[in-house]
């Protein structure tokens, strides 16, 4: 997976058929130097990233960052103006039909035919994917069971709750047994319970070997759910990689949270007295102190040894990790486009 920012524009549309790097496993999604412009608005500018197969990958960015445009390019609704888009190693320009067979797309709005029953709706899409009628029944039963909607298959979609409609939508995405699921804001508008249940279903799908690409604004959930994440802002990729790497990405100095007791002495002054400690700040109303170390001069082990040698009691010590939302704020620019 690439964790480099986007490169420059590719001059022309790339129509090569197979994945560039045949040495490793074929990535589920590969975008290389993709640019797209709507009249005077540059939606994507040299977007480059890869998502490996089997990943549960988050795609985040502020409003107007280019998330929906990227999704539309991947699911063959938009033609890339320059660059290369591959799904399961297939170029979306030259293998349109094959790509459509491999993907299941769930847009941010719930798009369903309200006058159909759940079963009719799923059967409609089964037929659209060319599944034979006998096989369709089995598949529909399976996906309904997976999404826990088996008891509502004869209900009219228009009469279902938002959470249930979202489950139907997810069931529809699974009808053609796609390798790649593209989900645009799947949890928006859901209550906490429906949200947690949806996340559980997504994890179960990942266990079944599906690659799941989720565009979302809910960073906390993405952090808990996804292995990796891509951050896009103003049409450019700011980060693409694992969440663990993102936590350390861009940190100049490593921070720790520590609680110490040193008799009557001020713990902050004690810490600042140690060579290599850049800062020591009290965290809120707690007794914890946030200490930043100069990575080249003082390691965590050295700090602890120093404290022990000075007979200072260490009550707690932990490495501070950046939350996804903090990383997101650091990487994206203020204001809307």
């Amino acid at each position: 997976m690439s964790n480099t920012p986007s490169g420059g524009n590719t001059a022309a549309i790339d129509t090569s058929d197979r994945a560039a790097d045949d040495r490793g496993p074929v990535p589920a999604i590969e975008m290389k130097g993709v640019s797209h412009r709507f009249k005077d608005h540059q939606a994507l500018d040299g977007v480059t990233f890869k998502i490996p197969q089997g990943a549960l990958h988050g795609f985040v960015g502020p409003n107007g960052a280019g998330k929906t445009t990227s999704l539309k390019l991947i699911c063959t609704l938009l033609k890339p103006q320059s660059g290369l888009v591959r799904v399961m190693g297939l170029n979306v320009l030259t293998h349109v039909k094959e790509v459509r067979q491999q993907i299941g797309f769930m847009p941010d709005h719930f798009s369903s035919y309200r006058q159909m029953t759940v079963f009719e709706y799923l059967d409609f899409f089964g037929a659209a994917y060319g599944l034979p009628m006998r096989k369709r029944n089995e598949v529909i039963e399976d996906v309904l069971e997976l999404t826990d909607m088996g008891g509502r298959k004869q209900s009219l979609i228009g009469g279902l709750s938002r959470g249930m409609q979202q489950r139907v939508s997810l069931a529809r995405v699974l009808v053609n047994d796609p390798k790649l699921l593209l989900l645009d804001e799947p949890a928006s508008g859901l209550d906490p319970r429906a949200r947690i249940e949806l996340m559980e279903i997504l994890q179960a799908l990942q266990d079944l070997g599906k690659t799941i690409f989720i565009s979302s604004h809910i960073l906390k959930e993405l952090e808990e759910l996804c292995d990796s994440v891509t951050i896009i802002d103003r049409g450019r990729i700011k980060y693409s990689g694992t969440i663990d790497e993102l936590r350390d990405h861009g940190h100049e100095n490593i921070a720790y949270r520590i609680q110490i007791t040193n008799g009557e002495a001020d713990p902050i002054e004690t810490l600042l007295g140690i060579e290599g400690v850049v800062s020591a700040i009290k965290v809120g109303n707690s007794r914890a102190i946030r200490v930043t170390l100069d990575d080249g001069r003082l390691s965590a082990n050295q700090l602890l040894s120093e404290l022990i040698s000075r007979n200072i009691t260490i009550n707690s010590f932990e490495k501070e990790q950046r939350q996804l939302n903090q990383a997101f704020m650091d990487l994206t620019e203020q204001g809307v486009r």
């Binding site: 063959t76 609704l77 797309f105 769930m106 847009p107 798009s111």
Partner: peptide, 8 residues
């Protein structure tokens, strides 16, 4: 329309 268009 979008979901129909992503079918083959």
């Amino acid at each position: 329309l979008d979901v129909v268009l992503t079918t083959p």
